[in-house]
């Protein structure tokens, strides 16, 4: 199937006086899995809806396969969308739901049947074809929504938080399945999520948005290793990066950042700290320490499971084992990573 590059050029969207997107320029190349990541209200869903044609940009250009589609109706854009709510037609059977986009395009019955069969097989829905969406579990509905999207063999998939209504286990399963689906079809995917784990594990590249403004685009590795600014630094990584505004360097213009996994405990490091909390997750420990007395900064340290964690209340010394990020406190921009 043909896959398409999708691009937004200086796209702006206002709802009254609210700016949902401000001059967003972003391109997903053909076959790429691009994740739009950000907290709620950052404009990521608006961007997706603009690509689908469900919203008109206030200004700017939307292109699919290089063609400007600003004036093209959603039905003629040849993209498939998966909604957070799944948006299955409740009065139609699973089969008719999957068939709906094909019937809308007046595809001959034989080919339609073949396509539905294939989509149902690839998502293990064969047994459920005659059921109504109301009789399915959340995970099954999710599969039907995906089947309805893939059956069309569109130029691109737009997915709006498709996994956020699933329970944690199912989410992990579906994550793997989506990645596999993408690997097989190599169709462009634009995937919206607020979950950084999804973004980091699924995306070829991740675009991080905040307040309608693009913060950084890069591979998961790039945005983790070189966050463009304080927002990206604190948004990517779990637990988030420890930030020390000014205090440690006696330079209020610079904020230091150290990731929790880049601290070591008890190797005679230079920082004195008191352990206030230890969370053992099985595969790792999260240790919260306070440095510089009772009203000092709180630091989260991530230790591998093999290391035995300190006791609460224990005095420890902290050392930095890997890179330290320096950010401009005023603008938040990354100055250097050493």
């Amino acid at each position: 199937m043909e896959s398409a590059a999708v691009s937004l050029e200086a796209v702006e969207k206002r709802f009254g006086s609210t700016v949902a997107l401000s001059s967003l320029t972003l391109e997903a190349s053909a076959g790429e899995f691009l994740v739009l990541l950000g907290p709620s209200g950052c404009g990521k869903s608006t961007a997706l809806r603009i690509i689908a044609g469900l919203e008109q940009p206030t200004s700017g250009t939307v292109r699919i396969s290089g063609k400007v589609v600003n004036e093209v109706e959603p039905k003629d854009r040849d993209v498939a969308m998966v909604f957070q709510s799944y948006a299955l037609y409740p009065h139609l059977s699973v089969r008719k739901n999957i068939e709906f986009p094909l019937r809308s395009r007046r595809m001959p019955a034989e080919e339609r049947e073949l396509r539905v069969k294939e989509a149902a097989r690839s998502l293990q829905l064969e047994e459920l074809l005659e059921r109504k969406p109301g009789q399915l579990s959340g995970g099954q509905r999710q599969r039907v929504a995906l089947a309805r999207a893939i059956v069309r063999q569109p130029k691109a998939f737009l997915m709006d938080e498709p996994l956020s209504n699933l329970d944690a286990r199912l989410r992990v399963e579906m994550r793997a399945e989506l990645v596999e689906l993408h690997r097989r079809s190599r169709t462009t995917v634009l995937y919206v999520t607020h979950d950084q784990v999804e973004a980091m594990t699924m995306g070829d590249r991740v675009a991080i948005l905040r307040g309608g403004v693009l913060q950084q685009v890069g591979t998961p590795k790039q945005v983790h290793a070189r966050p463009a600014n304080l927002f990206v630094a604190s948004f990517i990584g779990s637990p988030p990066m420890n930030l020390f505004p000014g205090a440690l360097l006696d330079d209020p213009g610079v904020t230091l950042g150290v990731r929790p996994e880049h601290f070591s405990i008890g190797d005679g490091g230079p920082l004195r700290a008191v352990v206030t909390l230890v969370e053992s997750l099985g595969h790792e420990h999260h240790v919260a320490c306070r440095i510089g007395g009772a009203d000092g900064s709180l630091v989260i340290v991530r230790l591998p499971a093999a290391v035995s964690p300190p006791e609460i209340g224990q005095q420890v010394s902290l050392g930095v084992t890997d890179r330290v990020f320096r950010f401009d406190s005023e603008s938040g921009q990354l100055l250097e990573a050493t």
Partner: peptide, 22 residues
């Protein structure tokens, strides 16, 4: 629900098809 109508629009359904089928 709005998202059903939107899904139908993206699914390629014309205005009359959206009205009569959804």
């Amino acid at each position: 629900p709005d998202d059903l109508m939107e899904a139908a629009a993206v699914d390629g359904a014309s205005g009359s098809r959206r009205f009569f089928r959804v």
